[in-house]
């Protein structure tokens, strides 16, 4: 009875962990029994060893620092540019009509196709990577901010107006706080996109960073190291996203 209750309360955790463990066991087993080419699929134990070697050699810290630096610059720039842009679009109709076509084209088109242009203009290295990641992220920030500003209850705005609120008050006391949850949600999505941008840029051409590690060991057919770098990328992505989610939930609580 007690056990049953314990299970019911933690069903999602227990089943989820079970799923992960089953996956790892199946992966290890398939690799050991050579049902698939072990060179190709590697195995969890080999990945763990590769990860350990990577960390011990000190290269992990270096690669991580490079990628994180690019991520932080790109994401920071996207927030600094995207939020004001979205606010302007939400605040003024003509501005929205003027900026809208560019944002939608950027949103719908595969931004990676611009990569060779960045290489020609900015050269191989951190500048091109940051610009690509920035473009990946900024669209998301802008669209979310715009939707947040536009989505504020018009009744609230009219109420404020009828109490003689100045434009400044209207902006800082109604528009910005009202749009904040959407803005933070946009930042959360944007950090994931920025990370993808960083990885793609490093994958194509760089000599450091997680993406470089991926392409380098992928090309050498050392897939244990390849999976280890993929794993680190996933962890970085989850940590960054969860970090913003914590901020998000704090604001959501404040709002209600």
């Amino acid at each position: 009875m007690q056990l049953n209750l314990l299970y019911r309360r933690n069903e999602s955790v227990i089943l989820g962990t079970l799923g992960l463990v089953a996956f790892l066991v199946a992966w290890e087993g398939v690799s050991r029994l050579e049902w698939f080419d072990p060179v190709l699929i590697s195995s969890p134990s080999l990945v763990a060893v590769a990860l350990k070697n990577w960390a011990v050699s000190g290269a992990l810290a270096r690669d991580l620092a490079t990628s994180l630096l690019e991520l932080v610059i790109a994401f920071g720039a996207a927030a600094v540019v995207g939020v004001p842009l979205g606010v302007i679009m939400g605040w003024s109709r003509p501005a929205e009509y003027a900026i809208d076509p560019f944002i939608w084209v950027l949103y719908a088109s595969p931004t990676v196709s611009l990569w060779p242009l960045f290489i020609i203009w900015l050269g191989i290295g951190i500048k091109s990577i940051v610009v690509l990641a920035f473009l990946f992220a900024v669209v998301q920030v802008t669209i979310n901010t715009f939707a947040g500003v536009r989505g504020i209850d018009p009744l609230l705005i009219r109420c404020a107006r009828s109490f003689n609120a100045s434009r400044k008050d209207l902006f800082f006391k109604f528009t910005l706080p009202g749009a904040l949850p959407m803005i933070i949600a946009g930042l959360r999505l944007a950090v994931g996109r920025a990370l993808i941008g960083v990885i793609i840029g490093e994958l194509f051409s760089s000599n450091a960073g997680l993406g470089f590690h991926i392409s380098y060991y992928g090309a050498k057919l050392r897939f244990a190291d390849f999976f280890a770098s993929l794993l680190v990328v996933v962890v970085v992505g989850i940590l960054a996203t969860q970090g913003i989610r914590i901020i998000e939930s704090r604001f959501a609580r404040w709002k209600t």
Binding site: L15, G16, G192, I196, G218
Partner: peptide, 22 residues
Amino acid sequence: FLFLDPLLMAIYTTPRVAMMPL
């Protein structure tokens, strides 16, 4: 769903394009 959820989420957060070499 509960069984596969964390696994799917892990793959979902992996940049799929990073799997290109494999």
